[in-house]
């Protein structure tokens, strides 16, 4: 035991001297606003890794990083643990990155960490899903929760002729941004489509196979179902396959948020009616462009437009850089996209 204690003490001392040695170094290396000549470091955080949606964002981000000659870090939690996002951001702060771009799993939770980063002079932008406004400089806005909710509900009502039963398949009951979307879907339904009735909400754990099973059950448990609304991307092809196997293609509509490559087959054969999304590669590209511009002082609060490299000019509303309206992938246009 004493030998052990001695060793531990020795290690502790070694670490402390290490700290003392590197302490001043780190203070000398400024956290934000790097001196001219040093390569900027952009840290990009997805909501989770191993998620095809964010992989396509990363593609665009890497392109932008190459165009601008900056270093790009891409890291995030591997499982849906929102606290893990905070840990990674806190690690980036001490790492000394120049700008952080985050897609936020839990708005209130992550804002604490992002504010800490801003206090240290690190620039912060959010993309995909926003943090609290005082925790970031800009939000690269591909669609607000309200915009997504409205688009989904409007499309559902259009396909159902403004009345009928529909069900929602979500990733998990606790996923923060899906909770927000549901809120706006419901608000829109109450305000504009009282004839529509939401009969069930089922989680699919972000798994396609489970979504397929849930959809199969929903179709039979609610025989009057007219539409399945899928608000997590693996659920869209899962639900479409279930509808197809039940022989209800065309009778029960399928819509949702998803990637064109995962849904091409079903959109083309008419099982899935509409897939709503934005150009995710562009989202990643624009996010890194604006993050770098912000860090270099080219993008300032109050600006009304932003030049996003090869993508051209984007409007800024308040502190939101607008990517544009959500895009609807349908039979007619889905073949133009590959992501």
């Amino acid at each position: 035991m004493f030998r052990f204690l001695a060793l531990t003490l020795g290690l502790g001392l070694a670490m402390l001297t290490g700290c003392n040695k590197s302490g001043p170094d780190s203070a000398a290396a400024p956290a934000g606003g790097s001196p001219a000549g040093k390569r900027l470091t952009v840290a990009l955080m997805p909501k989770s890794k191993g998620n095809a949606y964010f992989v396509s964002c990363k593609q665009g981000a890497e392109q932008a990083a190459k165009d601008l000659g900056v270093e790009l870090i891409f890291d995030g939690p591997v499982n849906p643990d929102p606290a893990k996002q905070n840990e990674i951001i806190e690690n980036w702060i001490t790492l000394g990155v120049d700008v952080i771009a985050a897609a936020c799993e839990n708005k209130d939770g992550i804002s604490t960490a992002l504010k800490k980063a801003r206090d240290k002079g690190i620039k912060v932008v959010t993309y995909d899903s926003d943090a609290n406004p005082d925790a970031r400089d800009f939000f690269v806005n591909q669609a607000t929760p309200e915009g997504i909710g409205n688009a989904l509900m409007d499309e559902a009502a259009r396909l159902c002729g403004n009345e009928g039963e529909f069900a929602i398949i979500t990733a998990s009951l606790t996923a923060q941004n899906m909770i927000e979307w549901q809120k706006f879907i419901e608000a829109r339904r109450v305000a504009k489509y009282p004839g529509m009735k939401m009969v069930a909400l089922r989680p699919c754990d972000d798994l396609k196979d489970k979504a397929q099973a849930e959809a199969t059950t929903l179709l039979s448990a609610f025989p009057n179902l007219k539409l399945l609304m899928n608000i997590c991307s693996p659920a869209v092809p899962g639900a479409a396959e279930a509808v197809k196997q039940a022989g209800k293609a065309g009778k029960v509509k399928v819509i949702g948020l998803g990637l064109p490559n995962e849904n091409r087959r079903y959109v083309k054969d008419g099982t899935t009616d509409t897939v709503i999304l934005w150009k995710t590669v562009d989202l990643g590209y624009l996010t890194v462009q604006s993050a770098v511009a912000l860090a270099r002082g080219e993008l300032k609060p109050g600006a009304t437009s932003f030049h996003g490299g090869k993508l051209g000019d984007f409007k800024i509303a308040g502190d939101n850089i607008l990517l544009g309206e959500p895009f609807k992938f349908t039979k007619d246009n889905i073949d133009q996209f590959d992501f």
Partner: peptide, 26 residues
């Protein structure tokens, strides 16, 4: 303990701002 020491030494050498007070606190 040896593994831990090796980790610390390695990351101190190869990592950026690893041994700083703030990072140890993290």
């Amino acid at each position: 303990l040896l593994v831990l020491v090796l980790e610390v030494v390695f990351f101190q050498l190869a990592g950026r701002n690893f041994g700083t007070v703030d990072n140890v606190a993290n």
